[in-house]
């Protein structure tokens, strides 16, 4: 029975957002089923990596070399892994142009929660046109906070945007709400 003051749609949304509680054996039962399905579909002639493991069991040195090789590859992957310069995107993205007037500045960059606050050289470098600095970037839809970094050291809020109240680190920032144009 609908409660007073709540629409049916709200109650449906609330119900759909409620976490599903699964019993402890659920995962085990799913995995048993998955393995059974996998075993049925798999060609009988190959037995996969477990066969490899079984064959190398006769030669422990090979097993050790294989394991060391895997770890080495993983380690090399980690050493090579570099943070991406792209903005992390999980949903809709919209083009946003940031403009800041600073006639005497030598550089202006935009940093915010959409580019990890400029960590790992992810700051958006603005281009200068007679003291008017601008940069356009594709920003994920949602609520964001950002700031301009002038000459690589001075953090300033966007004077044209709403202020962000949560400046916990003593440097000003601005708020930005990017709407999803597809909705």
């Amino acid at each position: 029975m609908p409660e007073w003051g709540r629409t049916t749609l709200e109650m449906i949304v609330e119900e759909l957002q409620r976490p599903v509680v699964l019993d402890k054996s659920f995962e085990r039962r799913v995995m048993v089923r998955v393995r059974r399905l996998y075993a049925e579909r798999r060609p009988r002639r190959g037995r996969g990596w477990l066969t490899v493991a079984a064959s190398v069991a006769h030669r422990p040195a090979w097993a050790a070399a294989l394991a060391a090789g895997i770890v080495a590859i993983a380690t090399a992957g980690v050493m090579r892994a570099r943070p991406t310069r792209d903005i992390l995107v999980t949903g809709a993205v919209e083009p946003v142009t940031f403009v800041y007037v600073a006639p005497t500045a030598k550089s202006v960059a935009v940093v915010g929660d959409f580019n990890n606050w400029g960590l790992d050289d992810s700051a958006l470098a603005a281009t200068n046109l007679q003291g008017v600095w601008s940069v356009t970037a594709r920003i994920p839809a949602g609520v964001h906070r950002y700031a301009f970094v002038v000459d690589g050291k001075q953090w300033v809020a966007d004077p044209t945007a709403p202020r962000s109240s949560s400046d916990d680190f003593g440097m000003p920032s601005s708020a930005l709400v990017v709407e999803d144009s597809t909705k």
Binding site: A57, P60, N116
Partner: peptide
């Protein structure tokens, strides 16, 4: 080394490789 020990060893190596790789996937981990 027995078969089961070898399998455990390979599985452990794979698991550690996976864990290390998963940690590296977050580009913000500085």
């Amino acid at each position: 080394m027995s078969k089961s020990k070898t399998r455990s060893f390979v599985v452990a190596a794979l698991m550690s490789a996976y864990v290390v790789s998963a940690g590296a996937q977050d580009p913000r981990t500085g």
